[in-house]
Each structure stands twice: as structure tokens, then as C-alpha cells.
Design a protein around this nucleic acid. Structure first.
Length: 606
RNA sequence: UGGGGCGUAGUCUAACGGCAGGACCCAGGCCCUUGGAGCCUGUUGUGAAGGUUCGAAUCCUUCCGCCCCAGCCA
């Protein structure tokens, strides 16, 4: 007998059944006793996704000596978007979970599309999201010499050749999905000739497009990627890092796997479309007999009512449909940052949507939920009137100003209190008054009493209208001095509480209201022949210039986030100047009244 | 049509031969000085048909549907 303890605890359970199954059992058991006991379910550890399961298993079996090393490999040809955030969270997250590290590597193999500006923005965005690659900042262009030497090695093995076919001819020789390709007439050049030609390609003796280096694999392979893929092309272009040192550049397929290998990556995580390329990467690595990372593919993220491909985002920027990569309507990290999203909310979103292999279209409501949830806990409350309607309190002493106490955040008493000035002339929200109140509208109307938040109960006594338009321009009300702070001593209740600002003390502000960028959940869904941009939402931006905000906002700094009570979360835009605050609406509050109105309207239509 | 992948509520995702669970959305209720937040309740699901099994989302067979690949882009 060994000296194994007799007790049977959680860890034995874990060891025998596996973690996930064990937690499921415990939770099931707890659910049964939930009504009787005060026990919390075990949910502190979110279940592992399928990639993490693979890594966990590799770790357990001591593959790569238990080492876990991932990388995030962007091409610096555009700004990062929410889809990249998913990949970043995945790669850095796995490294963190399994005590490994994650590299940042720029896959900069195409000088004609890549720029330093993109490199800088990518680094800023990853840092802002909260991830740290320490000193592991790499570039595929760092490996150009090694890649070249490896290409020479393949030529020597008779596994690569210089081909003089034009791009068009290569396409024709490649065959189709159903028909095999034909061998290039240059496929059987001697090793010596290939070596000489490849060397002269590097030396700049040939025109762009006149020659390429190709792997010699199998022109009849059912996988098109194996039909003698191009490894090097001639490109007399200036590279953002290597300048004019090179005039031949490796293709992504030739560079990517070896770059991972050089960095000692254990798990190369990428998106589904590279699944077909894996046999090619494996072939290269096997021919070279170098470290062989394991590639695992997952489905890229799609989000409803927006587009998440760099190509389309670039098009929106270049054609002026948005103001730039950081337009707050863009699903880019920089756009979302400017819009007021927090890194925490984005990371949380990436956690919740999970990782799998099936195509997906995540409802943008999930993203909005995540940022509301975060900002609800953290954003200080403040009062702002977006579309002002003048209210005069006739029985309030002229010239009197009271400083009323207001709570900064009911979710967090630690955020303290502030003073808000109250006076005889106020502004309230236009939509908080109806002359002829509709069904279930319980805000201000003639003869009705409501509460002004942190202020007094007021009753609407009279309406002033514009003689020409008939539009209500001013309300005359009376207040009940006994209700200061918002409570009636006799205990009587009012059904509505309105936000307000003091006309004399409030500050002017511009507010930018954003809606979904596209009207359709899937912008690609178009009637025959129409462009995806025809689904652009014409009302995705509304600018309100007559807004008034409470004076405590005077020193609000760009980037600061607030909840405008009863309206939503707003973020100070860098466009703000000394005289004028500019706010972006990050997301509205959940609005049951608006939803009610919608259903009422629908019911009326039918 | 060749190759590669994928089908679990309206959406996303768990369950690894053993009670189909969670989140979002939606609907209702409680509470309330935000029609906010919070709390409670509810509706809806294994693409289809066979087979193996005491037991199938899970294994097998057939079928159906969707996505990716014919860049010297990544």
C-alpha cells in the first residue's frame, strides 16, 4: 500500500472526472439545494474554450515541455477593430492562463500596403486594451535574411524553383477547383540555375513581376495552396522598416509559419480561412526541419449592424462615409475608445462571446450591454438637457439660488455628493412634456405634478406657445417649498422624476448622438447587385448643438465618461474647446418608455 | 463539381455516452427620487432520417444546408 490519504476531496474529484465535468456536477448539486442553503455556485472559473482545452491538454502531456507561447500577428495595413480585440484577448489570455507569454509580431511582408502610422496605432490600441508584450515586439521583416537563407536551402534540396511565368499565366497553369494544374515549363531548372537566378532577383536585376520563386510541391494537389505556391515576388518598393534594402519580398504564406517557428511559438492561433494553408505551413516546416508550432483555427467575429473587415473599413474611411478610423461609429478600437467604450467592457465582451469554429453574427446589443454594465458601476451621474424647454417657477423668489445635494453614483456611495444650483428659470427636456399626454405617459403635462431630481415637486400651470408655429416654447409652473430635496412631508408620491438644469448656471454643449452604422443586421445582405454601403444608416449621427449641462462639468477633460441621468453614457470628445464641451453618446440607457412607445405605435398601425 | 470546415432557442456559447445549462434579446412582475440600476419569473433549441446502446447533441451511415479556397493580399 502506498501512503495515499484516504479522504476524497474536490481535487480528487477534479483529477478523476476532469475539471469541467466536475464543476458541472457540483453546480447541478448546488442547484438542487439552492433553495435551502446559501451556497454560491462555482462560477468563478469560466469554462475553457476549445482552444484552451487543447492547450491545457498539451500542457498536461508536457508537449513543448509544458511551455505555452502565443503571438498576436497583425499586418500594419489598417487600424485594429473589435474582431482583432477577440484575437488579442484570446492570445494574451491563453498566455496568461497557462503561465506563458504572448509576442506582438507585425506581419509586414507587403511594403505597398503597410505604414508606420498603422504600427503606432496598433501598439497604442493593444496597450489601451490592457495587454503587455514587454520587450517581445517583433517584425516579420526582422527575419527577411533568415527567410532568404531558408529559401536557398529549399532550392538546394530541389524543392523550390524560379519561375518566369507571368501572374496571369501562373493563374492559368494552376487549374481550377475540379481540374488539376499543369507544371510550369520552368519547373525543372537546375539547382545551379535556380540559385543564380534567385540571387540575381535579390540583386535587383529583374523587373517587378517578371520572376517569382515557387515551392515545388504538386500541381495536381486537390488543395490549391499546394500547387507550387509563390514564395517570393519582385517588388521594387520601399519598406517602412527595411527601406530599400530588399526588392524581393516573401509572401505571407512563406513568412508566417517560419516567423512563428523562429519565435518558438507553441500554439499559432489564427482564423478559419487559414485552415487550408496549414498543410503548406507544415510542409515548409518539415522541409526545413525546424521548430513546429501547432496551428489552431477559430471563427472570426462578426457583429451585427457593422462591418468587421479592414478592407471595408478602409473603404468607409477613404470614401468619406466616416470622419476617419477613429470615427465613434467605427467598430475600430480607436473609434470605440473615442466613443467612450472602456477596455474592461471590450475584454468582457470578448470573454462572453466565446470562441468556436462556426460562423457567427453576434448581436451588437451584447456589446452595448457590456459597456452599460461597466459604466453603470463607474460613471458619475450628471444632469444634462439635450433639447431644452424653458420652465419658469412663478412662485420661486426671483434672484434666489439654492445649492442642492446630488448623489454622484447610487451604485457607489464612495463617489460622494456634489452641489447643483437651482433657480427660478430652468430647462427641462422637451420630450418630458406633453400638452395632451398619451397613454401611459406620466411625465409633465398641464395640471400635473412631477419631481425635479434632487429639487422640488413642481406643477404645470400654464403654457406659452410660439404664435406662428404653435410650438410650446415655455412652461409656467409652481413649486412646493415643502418638497425640497424631492420628498413630500405628507408622503404623497409623484409618478415621474425629471432631470433639469438651471438656465443661468448651465453650460452650453454639443452632443453627438450615434446609432448603428448600418440599418441591416448583416450589411452584406443586399438586393441584387446593390452595394453593401447601400445599407449604411443615414441617421447614424445626429448632432445637437443647443444642449445645456450642469456647471460641475466645467472642467470635464477629454475622454471623461459620465451618465447623463435618464439618457445614457456620454464621453467628452477631444473636439471640446474652452467655450464649448462636446460629448459623444457611448450608448443610451435602456429605455422602457421608448420601447413602450414603439409597441404602441405598432399596435396603432395594425 | 475537387479540397477544407461548420450545423444546439431570435443571437452567442456550454454539455466530451448519463437531468440540454449560461449570457444577450424579448415578455411579465417586485422595487425605486433615473421609465436607469438591481432582484424574481417566463417563452423558445440539438438541420433531417435511419442505426448502435439500458441510455445519443455526443458514436456510425445516408441526406440536407451554410462558410472558405482558383492573389505575385493577409
Amino acid at each position: 500500500m502506498t501512503g495515499k490519504p484516504v479522504g476524497f476531496g474536490l481535487f480528487d474529484c477534479l483529477a478523476i472526472l476532469g475539471r469541467a465535468s466536475c464543476i458541472a456536477r457540483i453546480n447541478r448539486a448546488l442547484k438542487k439545494v439552492k433553495s435551502t442553503g446559501n451556497i454560491k455556485p462555482v462560477d468563478s472559473v469560466s469554462p475553457l474554450n476549445f482552444i484552451e482545452n487543447i492547450v491545457a491538454e498539451d500542457s498536461r502531456r508536457n508537449k513543448y515541455r509544458g511551455r505555452v507561447h502565443t503571438r498576436f500577428p497583425p499586418e500594419p495595413n489598417g487600424y485594429l477593430h473589435i474582431g482583432h480585440a477577440k484575437s488579442i484577448c484570446l492570445n494574451f489570455g491563453i498566455a496568461a492562463k497557462f503561465s506563458g507569454v504572448c509576442n506582438l509580431r507585425f506581419d509586414d511582408t507587403n511594403p505597398s500596403k503597410e505604414e508606420t502610422e498603422y504600427v503606432e496605432s496598433i501598439k497604442e490600441d493593444i496597450r489601451w486594451l490592457g495587454f503587455d508584450w514587454e520587450n517581445r515586439e517583433f517584425y516579420a521583416s526582422d527575419y527577411f535574411e533568415q527567410l532568404y537563407q531558408w529559401a536557398v536551402q529549399l532550392i538546394r534540396k530541389g524543392k523550390a524553383y524560379v519561375c518566369d511565368l507571368s501572374a496571369e499565366e501562373i493563374r492559368q497553369y494552376r487549374g481550377t477547383l475540379t481540374e488539376p494544374g499543369r507544371n510550369s515549363p520552368y519547373r525543372n531548372r537546375s539547382v545551379e540555375e535556380n540559385l543564380d537566378l534567385f540571387c540575381r532577383m535579390r540583386a535587383g536585376e529583374f523587373e517587378d513581376g517578371s520572376k517569382v520563386l515557387r515551392a515545388k510541391i504538386d500541381m495536381a494537389a486537390p488543395n490549391l495552396n499546394m500547387r507550387d505556391p509563390v514564395m517570393y515576388r519582385i517588388l521594387h518598393a520601399t519598406h517602412h522598416r527595411t527601406g530599400d534594402k530588399w526588392c524581393i519580398y516573401p509572401t505571407y504564406d512563406w513568412a508566417h509559419g517560419q516567423s512563428d517557428s523562429i519565435e518558438g511559438i507553441t500554439h499559432s492561433i489564427c482564423t478559419l480561412e487559414f485552415e487550408d494553408h496549414r498543410p503548406l505551413y507544415d510542409w515548409y516546416l518539415d522541409q526545413l526541419e525546424v521548430h513546429h508550432p501547432q496551428q489552431i483555427e477559430f471563427a472570426r467575429l462578426n457583429v451585427s449592424h457593422t462591418v468587421v473587415t479592414k478592407r471595408k473599413l478602409l473603404e468607409l474611411v477613404n470614401q468619406g462615409y466616416v470622419s476617419g478610423w477613429d470615427d465613434p461609429r467605427m467598430p475600430t478600437i480607436s473609434g470605440m475608445r473615442r466613443r467612450g467604450y472602456t477596455p474592461e467592457s471590450i475584454r468582457n465582451f470578448c470573454d462572453r462571446i466565446g470562441v468556436a469554429k462556426r460562423d457567427n453574427l453576434v448581436d451588437i446589443a451584447m456589446l452595448e450591454h457590456c459597456v452599460r454594465e461597466d459604466l453603470n458601476r463607474r460613471a458619475p451621474r450628471v444632469m444634462a438637457v439635450l433639447r431644452p424647454l424653458r420652465v419658469v417657477i412663478d412662485n420661486y423668489p426671483e434672484g434666489q439660488v439654492e445649492e442642492l445635494d446630488a448623489v454622484n453614483n447610487p451604485e457607489d456611495p464612495g463617489m460622494g455628493m456634489r452641489k447643483v444650483p437651482f433657480s427660478r428659470v430652468l430647462d427641462i427636456e422637451q420630450e418630458d412634456f406633453q400638452e395632451e399626454p398619451s397613454r401611459k405617459f406620466f411625465r409633465l403635462a398641464p395640471g400635473r405634478e412631477v419631481r425635479l431630481r434632487y429639487g422640488y415637486f413642481i406643477t404645470c400651470k400654464d403654457i406659452v406657445k410660439d404664435e406662428k408655429t404653435g410650438e410650446v416654447t415655455e412652461l409656467h409652473c409652481t413649486y412646493d417649498p415643502a418638497t425640497r430635496g424631492g420628498d413630500a412631508p405628507d408622503g404623497h408620491k409623484v409618478k415621474a422624476t425629471l432631470h433639469w438644469v438651471s438656465a443661468e448656471h448651465s453650460l452650453p454643449a454639443e452632443v453627438r448622438l450615434y446609432d448603428h452604422l448600418f440599418t441591416k443586421a448583416d450589411p452584406a445582405e443586399v438586393r441584387d447587385g446593390a452595394d453593401w454601403k447601400s445599407n449604411l444608416n443615414p441617421d447614424s449621427l445626429k448632432v445637437l448643438k443647443e444642449c445645456r449641462v450642469e456647471p460641475s462639468l466645467a472642467d470635464a477633460a477629454p475622454g471623461a465618461r459620465y451618465q447623463f441621468e435618464r439618457q445614457g453614457y456620454f464621453c467628452v470628445d477631444p473636439d471640446s474647446s474652452d467655450g464649448l464641451l462636446v460629448f459623444n453618446r457611448t450608448v443610451s440607457l435602456r429605455d422602457t418608455w421608448a420601447r413602450l412607445q414603439k409597441t404602441q405605435k405598432k399596435a396603432a398601425e395594425h
